[in-house]
Simulated scan of single mutants.
Amino acid sequence: MNLITLENISKSYSEKKLLENISLGINDKEKIGLIGVNGTGKSTLLKIIAGAEIEDSGTITKANKVRIEYLPQNPYYDENATVLEQVFKGTCEEMKIIGDYQDILDKINKSYDEKLNEKLLKLQEKMDALNLWDLESSAKTVLTKLGITDFNQKVEELSGGQRKRVSLA
C-alpha cells in the first residue's frame, strides 16, 4: 500500500535551488534513508513531507489516515516541564485539543463562565470523537517502551539521549 507519493517537488531559497523535481513514493513497511552532504536539502525534504514547510511546486499525495510528524535535530525543550508535560507540548491536532481543554478547565476552576463551559463541552465532544481520554496512558506506555519510567522527572535533569526519547514519544 502506498503511504505517500511526492511528484516533481521543488524548493528554492532566493536564488538557490535546493530541491528540483524530486519524485518519491513510500510504501507500507518500507524503510528509507536520506543520505547527502550538508546543505543539500535532506531536512527541507523531510519538513515538506511532514507539512512543516511548503514546497514551491509539485504535489504530495498521502493515503487516508496517514499522519507524518517531524522531529527536528535540535528540538525545543521546556526545562521546567516534567517528562509527561513535555510529551503533551506536541504540535499535532490532538495535543492542541488537549491543551485547549486543559486551559479552559483551569479557567472554569478559577471562575465559572457559561461561554467557557460551552467551549469545554465542544472540546469534550472532540475528545470523545478522537478517543483522546486514554492518551495519557498511551503516552506512558510509549515512554516506558523507550526506557523512560519517571514521568514526573524534570526535563532539565534528563541526559541528551533521554531528551531525544521524550521527543520521540
Rank of each mutant, 00 (worst) to 15 (best):
L3S: 07
T5G: 10
E7A: 02
N8P: 05
Y13A: 08
S14R: 11
S14K: 15
E15C: 04
E15V: 09
K16A: 06
K16H: 11
K17A: 00
L18F: 04
L18H: 00
N21E: 12
N21D: 13
S23W: 01
L24V: 05
L24S: 03
I26W: 11
E30P: 02
I35Q: 08
G36M: 02
N38L: 09
G39S: 06
T40S: 15
T40P: 06
T44C: 02
L46G: 12
I49T: 01
I49A: 02
A50R: 09
G51C: 08
I54Y: 00
E55L: 09
I60V: 10
T61E: 14
K62Q: 00
A63C: 12
K65R: 11
K65W: 01
K65N: 15
V66R: 11
V66H: 11
R67N: 14
I68R: 02
Q73M: 05
N74Y: 14
P75E: 07
Y77C: 03
D78C: 09
A81H: 09
L84G: 06
V87M: 02
K89Y: 00
T91Q: 10
T91V: 01
T91R: 10
T91I: 09
C92S: 14
M95P: 05
M95A: 14
K96A: 06
I98D: 08
D100R: 15
Y101H: 09
D103Y: 10
I104Y: 07
I104M: 09
K107E: 15
K107I: 07
K110Y: 13
S111P: 01
S111K: 15
D113K: 05
N117M: 15
E118S: 09
E118K: 13
K119P: 07
K119W: 08
L120P: 03
L123V: 03
Q124H: 00
Q124T: 12
E125V: 05
K126F: 02
M127K: 08
M127G: 04
A129D: 14
L130I: 06
N131F: 10
L132F: 05
L132Y: 07
W133R: 06
D134S: 13
T141L: 11
T141A: 11
V142S: 08
V142I: 15
V142T: 13
L143E: 01
T144Q: 05
K145P: 08
G147V: 00
I148C: 05
I148K: 06
E157W: 08
Q162N: 07
K164V: 14
K164T: 14
R165M: 10
R165K: 14
S167R: 05
L168A: 07
A169R: 05
A169E: 00
